[in-house]
């Protein structure tokens, strides 16, 4: 990546390493970390002592900010968002923040509008509707 100065998530400039990498929504991280924590619980009496502070803080954070709790809903969210030709990073920001209106979605992820994809307001609105349905039926 050429220089920290260049980086700007609003324009999707996050460096090649991360643009190609798989992004995770908070709810997905929560599933992964809880699974790992359970594994630790089986092998040691005091699992909290085994994990780093970074792990502990991340687990608390993702538990607090997970929009979807059950694994099926998490999978559905990704499936729905994947239909809209979003970059991984954009997909996860939307999944994490669950904007309610089109204006809010564009403010959260300005790159949806700028990358020259045919992402009109109607498509965005449909996407947000689909998302809120999952939340409702979870």
């Amino acid at each position: 990546m050429s220089g920290e100065e260049e980086e700007n998530a609003a324009e999707l400039k996050i460096g090649d390493d991360f643009l190609k990498a798989k992004c995770l929504m908070n709810c997905e991280v929560s599933l992964i970390l809880e699974h790992k924590y359970e594994q630790l619980q089986q092998t040691s009496d005091d699992p909290m002592n085994q994990v780093s502070q970074v792990f502990e803080k991340s687990l608390q954070y993702v538990k607090r900010f997970s929009r979807y709790k059950n694994p099926d809903a998490v999978r559905q969210v990704r499936e729905i968002l994947a239909r809209y030709q979003l970059a991984e990073f954009e997909l996860c920001v939307l999944g994490n923040l669950c904007p309610e209106t089109v204006e809010e979605a564009i403010a959260m992820v300005p790159s949806i509008k700028t990358r020259g994809r045919a992402q009109d307001d109607e498509a965005i609105e449909k996407m947000l509707n689909d998302l809120s349905l999952i939340k409702k039926f979870e």
Binding site: A10, E11, F18, Q53, K57, S58, Y61
Partner: peptide, 29 residues
Amino acid sequence: VVFRPFKGEILEAVVTMVNKMGFFAEAGP
């Protein structure tokens, strides 16, 4: 799994301390 904040990114955080200069918040690590 890594956590990497980016300039321009929007995220949610928990406020940890408030003073007259502003406030501190934490988002994971």
